[in-house]
Design a binder for these strands. Structure first.
Lengths: 155, 155
DNA sequence: TAAGATAGACAACGTCGTTGTCGGTAATAG
DNA sequence: CTATTACCGACAACGACGTTGTCTATCTTA
């Protein structure tokens, strides 16, 4: 019978695991020509998708206010990852779409995440990693996007 | 041979797991008389420890600037979780110490985290949870900030 | 057609982080 | 013993990300 660790270690390790992956992703993204990508950009652009979206829709998808979504879109636009165009059928709306640079960043992120996952598998084993993922799925919500995170994403 | 999930799911699940635990911790802390406790306060106060510390030391321990540490200390002071006193041997320094209310918050947090961990164990199993923690320890940096303060934080 | 709902812009503010600067105190080199 | 250096804490300005609230323009609907 092994002794259970104190309960506070679990959130700490989950957070550290997240941080390790995110930090390594962005170090590699910077090497691959995306030095200005910030941790939340990938998540937001994933939520934008290939179809495009609007600030209000994006805010709802991410669980934040439309104003917050609008500011993030502004930042992504300045970085050249998205572009906005008026909707001809509803001139109130502005459709946000990924640029080729934005798509490139997402494609590279996906590849880098796959590589990082493989590195974890090499350390703890294929089967254990699949179990870890399966267990986490059981204790986390299915709706995956929820990003009202202040400073935890770090630099 | 099962198919591996895409690599981006791993950081997402780690983050969601973290968020679930932290959100439930603070919902319960609010019920137990600490409605103003914010997610990082516990981590910061844990880094302060029983001995007390200074803004510069705290910043180094947490990996942030001394100014950021100072602002967090200010917030914790306003909430009554820490108090500051001049160091008589070095009048430049101000020692930050936990108040009884701060200790109470940490003790309750520890109990709540233990309960939440037990709920996870009930869902995925004792053994699988221990394996999950062991695996995470292998892929995350050890000894991030002092966890060698078992007296007041442990059960 | 009048009334209501919705999209997006703008302002003000709160939190948490960063640099840079500055005065006061401690430690140390000459 | 003094002059320089190193350090501590405070303050200001800013950036990233979030919040409410308000406003105008536009679509929808009763």
């Amino acid at each position: 019978m092994s002794i259970d660790p104190p309960g506070y270690e679990l959130p700490l390790r989950l957070f550290l695991g997240f941080r390790v992956l995110i930090d390594e992703l962005h170090a590699e993204l910077a090497r691959q020509g995306h030095p200005h990508a910030r941790p939340m950009h990938g998540f937001v652009m994933q939520a934008i998708g290939t179809e495009g979206t609007t600030a209000v829709e994006l805010g709802r998808a991410l669980g934040v206010s439309k104003q917050a979504a609008g500011k993030t879109i502004e930042t992504l636009e300045r970085l050249g990852y998205v572009e906005r165009a008026r909707d001809s059928r509803d001139t109130r709306r502005k459709i946000v779409r990924l640029t080729p640079s934005g798509v490139d960043m997402l494609v590279r992120s996906a590849r880098i995440f796959d590589d990082l996952r493989a590195r974890w598998a090499a350390v703890i084993g294929d089967e254990r990693l699949r179990e870890l993922e399966a267990d986490l799925r059981k204790v986390t919500p299915q709706e995956v996007f929820r990003l009202d995170v202040p400073g935890w994403f770090g630099a």
